[in-house]
Simulated scan of single mutants.
Amino acid sequence: MSFRIRAASDGDLDHLYEMAKLTGGGFTNLPADRRALRKRLGVSSAAFSRDEETLGDDVFVLMLENVATGEVRGTCQMFSQVGTNHPFYSYRIATLTQQSEELGRTFRAEMLSLTTDLEGSSEVGGLFLHPGERAGGLGMLLARSRYLFIAMHRQRFADRILAELRGIIDEAGGSPFWDGLAGRFFGMNFQDADRFNATHGHQFIADLFPKHPIYVAMLTESARSVIGLPHPSGRAAMRMLESEGFAFEKYIDIFDGGPTMTAHTDRVKSIADSQVATVVAVDDDGGERVLAATGHLAGFRCAFAQMREAGGGVVVDRTAATALGVREGDQVTYIGRA
């Protein structure tokens, strides 16, 4: 069974909506709201159509497609830079040290400070893989296809990149972190706030969020215990990000307390190690298992391939050549699977 990554189109609305309903909440970039998803696809279409090879305010949506059946089984997104239209808020975990000579004691208190430090960064997010396809490396294909896209369109992305991981969500769909902190200032539950953020943006945060630092010790135990932890379903994604060179630098999501991972764009492994070659032949004589991509903007395609060097270029297996739509003389960008 062969899968490929391709650019999303307006015809993917139903596919996105059906996947959004399966996320279980807390997935800001994939809300179960047709209007918001239609708008996201429109913004993505405009990004794929923009001619200037410059950093803009773009959102690119990619889809995972079964080549044989045309079924869409996953999606992911890239944001060229965050915080251009609305502030991009995070909490930064800091430590305040205070000493009392009279008591002979030193106190170290963790604090959460509202910050816009990450504004202007690019972001990879919105990754969702259908539960029936969570095997065979398709999550890796979705995740790393974004980095190959960035490598192939480098001027459209910033020098810093981030990824927000969903935080802990309880069985009722609530967030212990939200209930222990932000929920007290907004008068709405986590699901309502998350939905409002996904459909209306962050301005309400600027209007109502407390601007002064929050002492972690003053939060409920349930809120403290989930700070910086990813949702169980996101642990593998966190390990994958770490293997690419992302690190947790004590930034967390203001809604659910999940970790925000950051990296220098040019040091992300799949970007730094990507190679470009010309296809000199197509056959089924084997080769190294790689992720290969081709095409510009809306013509982008990415798939697993068997590839080997030959004649100053590379030989690609027939299945991958079909999935990618390449033939002799075409250029591919690729990265080893490991």
Rank of each mutant, 00 (worst) to 15 (best):
F190N: 00
S113C: 11
R6T: 10
Q331W: 06
A172N: 12
Q99S: 15
Q99M: 14
H202N: 12
A47N: 10
I161Q: 10
G286A: 08
V315N: 08
L241I: 08
G201A: 05
N189K: 08
R92A: 14
H296N: 13
R239W: 12
Q98C: 11
L114F: 03
F27M: 12
M78C: 13
V316T: 08
L129D: 04
G329S: 05
L127M: 14
E133I: 06
A338V: 04
F149D: 09
D14C: 00
R105Q: 14
D283F: 09
S145Q: 01
R73N: 11
R184G: 12
I161Y: 08
F79G: 06
G24M: 10
T294L: 03
F185P: 02
T95G: 10
P87L: 04
Q99P: 03
S80V: 04
G311V: 01
G180I: 00
R289P: 02
F88L: 05
G174Q: 05
P87Q: 09
E123H: 09
D10Y: 12
D194V: 11
S233I: 06
A338H: 11
K250N: 15
H264K: 14
E288Q: 12
D283Q: 03
S222V: 02
E244C: 00
S100P: 05
G257F: 07
L324G: 07
A320H: 05
P210L: 06
F88Q: 04
M152G: 10
Y89Q: 01
G125E: 02
D317Q: 04
G287T: 12
Y215L: 15
H202C: 01
A193S: 09
D330F: 01
D330W: 06
M238E: 13
L324D: 10
G313F: 09
C76H: 14
H15A: 15
T294D: 00
P230M: 08
R160S: 08
Y147S: 03
L118G: 04
S44P: 07
T278D: 12
I227G: 00
D266T: 13
D10H: 13
A237T: 13
L13R: 08
R195I: 00
D179W: 04
I254D: 02
A36Y: 00
R4N: 11
K21N: 06
C76F: 13
Y251M: 04
D170T: 02
R308E: 07
A198C: 06
T319S: 10
L13F: 08
D12R: 05
M78F: 05
A223M: 03
S145I: 01
A298I: 11
A158I: 03
L112V: 10
S145Y: 00
R160Q: 07
M261D: 04
R146S: 09
G126M: 00
E221V: 09
R160F: 01
T115D: 03
D179G: 04
D256K: 04
R301N: 06
G312K: 00
I169S: 05
G325T: 06
T265D: 03
P232N: 06
E309T: 15
V59R: 12
A36W: 02
F185Y: 14
E119Q: 15
R239D: 13
